[in-house]
Amino acid sequence: MSLHPRRHRWRTQWATIVWLTVVWVFLWGDLSVGNVLAGLAIALAVTTGLRMAPIAFHGRFRPAGFLHLLGRFVLDLVKASFEVSLIALRPRYVPHGAVIGVQLRSHSDLYLTLTAELSSLVPGSLVVEAHRLTGVLYLHVLDVRQSGGIEAARQAVLDQEERVLRAFASDEELDAAGLGVRA
């Protein structure tokens, strides 16, 4: 921890404050000065009153990677929902599930959480257990046959992690994960 905890906290919490203000403005629906100020006041009160562990975000926001992540995510979400609906509605079909463990390549809580959230919403997999210290995600695959096998399901999670890293990670983190920087 740094020697100036209060200053340290403001700097790392600004993203949370911005996010809370955005949520407040969205709730009220119109972008007026009063709403933004009220949102800022409430966000400040919440972040100073309810103290949570600040998430260390050393990464860099890459717009191209972020758009790619978002687009693929929307496509995968639509595909996943229809696949699960098909399995549910097809008569006399029993899905055979499996639980696989995937070793993620990055060493940060934030990317682990993001990958876990996104993997839960896309085809075939659902996060059952996550070990923070070792960076392993355990996922339950709904139907092994539909996902193309166990190794294909594992590779899908690793691809999801790669898309998350390419959207948010800094260059050092990308190198540490073994993914080269794309030009």
Binding site: S81, V84, S85, P95, L142
Partner: peptide, 18 residues
Amino acid sequence: RFPDLLARMHAGTKPQTL
């Protein structure tokens, strides 16, 4: 319809969210 607790969770998240 799904046979198992873990499979039923799939039904609860994906089609429901979309």
